[in-house]
Write a protein that binds this DNA or RNA. Structure first.
Lengths: 108, 108
DNA sequence: TTTTGACTTGTCAGTTGATGACAAAATTAG
DNA sequence: CTAATTTTGTCATCAACTGACAAGTCAAAA
């Protein structure tokens, strides 16, 4: 379990024996900034997920889950609110998806 | 069920018979911007949750759950990722909280 | 149909926060 | 020690958010 997404990246990087500069280049990132990301002092930008996935041959959907779950967990942790929020969120996602389906079906 | 937090605010406001201008003043918001919020064209700023709670005599914790769940649902909906992300997020929150407890106990 | 009040929409300047970049310090490895 | 690697500090820039105002629609009342 990782405290933030940066730890996850560091794990991937060191497993492959890359330096910050090497991986940074692949991710179009300054090595200094990648360092900050790995140390949780900056956020990893979602738009680079596909690069990350291709560099390490990861499934993009699974990677996005790893990433998003960190983002969500951070929010909940910082707001110190009940985990009930997750149940409520799940219902809302289902509602949004169902509403989207209905709208699509109306178009045809 | 609401598509966004603005709908929730509109419900509260119209139930009480407030106009946009009236509620806007209480929330320190332009009526035009409150209108956009209620119509989902702008986001409600989290820092105004306490004002909102006091105007309508709501429990702040419950209100925050309503708010945060919308934010989370929106993210998941937009990224079209699996709802598994919620389970993973829950584990991460628990991990973060537990890690925080450990750190606190070390201080004393 | 004119007026009035409520709401909506468009626009824009100002602010804020994130980002990229670079220098320099600190740490580690050879 | 030296060189490579990593970390930290700083700052200009850029994008996104915000508040504010003007102009617009709409419905009800006069």
């Amino acid at each position: 379990m990782k405290k933030h997404f940066g730890e996850y990246i560091r794990q991937l990087r060191t497993d492959k024996g890359f330096t910050l500069t090497q991986l940074g280049a692949k991710l179009e990132l300054d090595s200094a900034n990648l360092s900050k990301i790995e140390n949780g002092k900056r956020d990893f930008d979602e738009k680079r997920l596909n690069l990350l996935a291709s560099v390490f041959n990861l499934n993009l959907d699974e990677l996005r889950i790893e990433f998003l779950s960190q983002v969500i967990a951070k929010k909940i942790y910082e707001s110190s609110c009940s985990l009930d929020v997750l149940q409520v969120a799940e219902k809302k996602v289902n509602y949004l998806r169902q509403a989207n389906l209905k709208q699509k079906s109306l178009k045809f």
